[in-house]
Design a binder for these strands. Structure first.
Lengths: 216, 216
DNA sequence: TCGCCCCTGTTGACAGTGTCAACATGGATC
DNA sequence: GATCCATGTTGACACTGTCAACAGGGGCGA
């Protein structure tokens, strides 16, 4: 899956080879910032070959990060899909999100970090799009919960929906950002698991209507 | 305040000179990762002088980040202090937090980024301590709100308090992290201001008890 | 007072980086 | 069959973080 060898098959092969090599390198090197030349080495090409496929180091990293967001989207989609209602779906989504970040911390750090930016600080459209698509899973879930009355979200008020999405999505990003550190000093993930459940409960509860939801 | 010139006054002078120089450099260079040598140049010393005061580049950056957290703490403390109750205090704290991040995005990016880490990925005790102290302002505020019944927090349950603190703090970090990007493409900060208010309201509302708080 | 040592700073070197320029090459196209 | 372009290579450049060796000078014990 993550083995990288020189381009052999069809068009654009080196491009994906480089992305895979970078991802593999990222996964194994704990928090080290990976170098373009090392990626090229890993892919079995010269140190300048990447420049035929990416303008920048940042553009290569952005492609890796975009792939990460695609995987994140699949992960949370799958988690939320199996839930009986939106509240449990949200809980599952939160758990899947945190697990995804734990699974490959370097990748997650890359996804939200600034190595991925253009020199002017902007994000590439592909990366932004991939991130938006991942966030859309949460949006759909919240809207579903709003419609069924499980969440106190006015689904006809775009601002209200957006604010709810941003609030939850921000919490997830911030939570993983902050707690991945703490995990490093803990022996087991158990404490983190409990805290995650607690935070998830707070988030879900915070979204619940003041009055009792539809009974039953 | 941020002007840096060669060490002239008492002990440890170059140390603080370097920190100030780095902070100033960080403030003016938009999102560029600052180099140790440039900091030294800015401080008017040779490129190796910093190594007499910091083991690493990371250790210097950690000191800058710690100073940032100290400022953040002061900022949110002041904002929360003037509020009549905990709910308004929390709203003010949120606004101050976001404003702080907006005020110097590079500094904030440094504070939460990974340039600040030791080679093994850990954080220095000073930095962790400064971050904890800043978070403690929020903690005190939430406990106050819990005691007065404004927030549904069981102040005798350490886990409950922690989860509430982590939830809000995470949301703040994640929100600024995500929205600072969006701001770049917007003409004015007005839209962000509205969204921030909306998110703040959701956070505060989410903390409110299900039953009406103590009347009056 | 002399001599030594350590603290702080300097100079110089080294491997490694991102990126640019110039060159090779081989397959598609006219 | 000649030509061109996409893709790759080699070589160079400025710059980086860090190490080693050296300089000076102020404090301190003899």
């Amino acid at each position: 899956m993550s083995e990288a060898h020189p381009a052999t098959s069809g068009t654009e092969s080196l491009r994906t080879t480089l992305i895979d090599a970078a991802a593999a390198l990222l996964a194994q090197s704990e928090a080290a910032s990976l170098s373009l030349r090392e990626v090229a080495r890993r892919a079995g090409v010269s140190h300048n070959a990447p420049y035929r496929h990416f303008r920048d180091k940042a553009e290569l990293l952005a492609a890796v990060a975009a792939a990460g967001y695609d995987r994140l989207r699949l992960t949370v989609e799958r988690a939320a899909a199996g839930a009986p209602d939106a509240a449990e779906g949200l809980t599952a989504l939160i758990g899947a999100f945190v697990a995804f970040a734990l699974e490959d911390r370097s990748r997650y750090a890359l996804m939200i970090g600034k190595d991925v930016r253009n020199p002017d600080g902007s994000l590439s459209p592909e990366l932004r799009g991939a991130a938006d698509r991942a966030r859309h899973v949460l949006r759909d879930l919240l809207i579903r919960g709003g419609r069924s009355g499980i969440f106190s979200i006015d689904v006809d008020d775009e601002d209200d929906v957006s604010a709810a999405v941003v609030t939850v999505w921000s919490t997830l990003h911030g939570y993983t950002l902050l707690e991945l550190d703490r995990l490093r000093q803990l022996e087991t993930t158990l404490e983190i698991d409990q805290l995650t459940k607690h935070v998830a409960m707070r988030l879900v509860t915070g979204l619940r209507p003041r009055r009792a939801p539809v009974s039953g």
